[in-house]
Structures are given as C-alpha cells and as structure tokens.
Design a protein around this nucleic acid. Structure first.
Lengths: 146, 146
DNA sequence: CAATATTATATTGCGCGCAATGTAATATTG
DNA sequence: CAATATTACATTGCGCGCAATATAATATTG
C-alpha cells in the first residue's frame, strides 16, 4: 500500500537535513582524540583557527565568520582566556566592542595543532578527491544561500 | 610569502568539517519556525519520525538509527513522555530494555507535521534536484563509512 | 541637546550531545 | 551454580547553541 506524498516526505531516509546533522556530529566527534589532549573542544578549535588567521577580532566578527552568536561565544572566549590563549578587552574607541587578541600561548598552540588536519584525513575516507571537492561546493552553496 | 603545507591546512576555508557543522546548524535552525509552535525540538522531531515508522522501539535501536546515545535519549524521551507522545516501559522478557511506544497523541502529531517537509523545501534552495541527490549520496558515504 | 533608537556584548535558561560512571538484569564461565 | 563479565539504560557533569532578555555605549532625531 502506497503512502501519500506528504507522509512519504516524513520518512527519515527522505530527509537531507538528518544525514547532514548526523555527519556533522560524527566528524566533529572524530576530532576529539586529537583535541582533547590539548584541552580544546571543536568549537574552541575553530575559534583558534580564526585567531591564527586574524590575530585580533571582535566578538561580532567572530560570530559572522563562524555563524555563532554572543550567547555561545562569550563564555567560550572566557574559557580560552582562562586557558591563556586569548585576551578580551573593550575597545577604547567604542566601549561596546570587545576585542579578542591572540597571546603567545595561543600562537604556540598552533604548532601543537599542526598535524591535526593530516591525521584527520589519514584515517581515510572513501571520499575521492573529486567527491570531497563536490561536497565542499554543495555545502557552501547551502551555507551562503538559503 | 607562501605558507607551509601543514599550516595551510589549518585555514578555515580548507576544512570540510567546518561547512558541514555550520550547514547542519543552519538547516536544523530553519526547522524551528515550524517545530516550535508544536513544542518540538529538531531532535525530538527526528525521534518522532522514527516512532511514526516503527510504533515501538527500544532505546538502543533508536540510538543506532539516529546516532545518539542514552545520555541524550533518556531525558529527551522523558520529555516526549511528559508531552504524551510516547510511553516508556521496561520489557517483561528482559528488564534491562526500555521499550518506547507511540501513543495516539503521538500519532496525531504526525498530521500536524505533515506539511513541514514541503514548507522546508518551498523557501527554495539554489540546490538543483541533481545537486541535492549528489549531496545526499556524499553525506551517506561519509556517514556509513569512515 | 535631550529623548529615542540602535548596536555590541553579556546574561539567563533550557535542551541537547557526549564522555564517564553507576546500576540492575542477563549471559557466560569455570 | 556461584563468580565474573557483559549488556542496556540511567545519571552526572560540562560545554555548547540559541532564543530571549538585559545592559551599557553610541547614533540618530526632533
């Protein structure tokens, strides 16, 4: 007996969001063995990646780059500050703005993270180089657009 | 000045995980306008999707299907139980097992969710049908494999 | 320039998501 | 069959992730 069109769309296997959600958690989780020894979470890691590129940003810019809001970033940045990797200080020109700056310890952390990307790919995906490129393209299409 | 291969991989734009993570949150978030009026979170919604297909499952099976563990599922299932959508009872054959069963209210909820998939696609992605299929394939490749 | 609006961040509250640990029931093993 | 191991969930603790609200500083407006 055939299901109606509407109800058929409610089947898990017909969803695009679900595999995205599951995939994301799976990959984020696969970083843990490399990040936990450094005392980092995945979100802290991507914040540090931004810091390695920028050296200094404010909370709003960080949020735009990472698609995260102050409710997530503020406590996370306080933890990175406590760990000694960044400093948080109000801008002198506009006291509403909090400027996040990387410390020497934060810079040093970059070296400890140096091999993580290689270790992550090394396990080996069944994704070919071409598939990976295609996946990348489609994800950014979704991300920039809808 | 050129960056070393290792450090270049630490650039956010060279990561596959980051867009997946951001994309996942973005799509999950786009469900909120439709789920919140029903008092559901996205995770509760996909649990209910399983219940609509199975009528009765135990916690372990639910975890396998959704890639979630008991630490996440137990409190979530208690909330769905309090909302009246499922029941939780120990199996008589094996008292370690908790059986989750859908209630008539849970079945009724399916009708209220009927139009959600259509509403989700309707906003319109720049993804073509072909791109969506390709994305689906690549996500499941990642999910089943690595 | 005082009143109002806007902006940037912080705070609060709640529901995940997951590692680690606990607990009770069932399986296995000597 | 008693001791031990394993299994299936439950609990605890912590860090997000985000909506809603608060707060303080700056911009705008009449």
């Amino acid at each position: 007996m055939r299901m109606s069109q509407e109800y058929e769309q409610l089947l898990l296997k017909n969803q695009l969001c679900f595999p995205m959600y599951a995939c994301s958690r799976k990959i984020v989780g696969s970083y843990t063995p490399y990040l936990k020894p450094l005392g980092l979470t995945y979100t802290q890691y991507i914040v540090m990646m931004v810091m390695w590129e920028k050296e200094s940003v404010n909370v709003g810019q960080l949020g735009e780059i990472l698609y995260l809001d102050a409710g997530t970033l503020t406590p996370l940045l306080k933890r990175l500050e406590n760990a000694g990797y960044v400093t948080r200080q109000r801008s002198k020109e506009d006291e509403r703005i909090t400027i996040i700056s990387i410390t020497p310890e934060g810079e040093a952390l970059k070296e400890k993270c140096r091999d993580i990307p290689a270790k992550m790919t090394e396990g080996g995906t069944s994704l070919t180089e071409k598939d990976a490129r295609e996946l990348y393209r489609l994800l950014y299409l979704f991300l920039n657009d809808k």
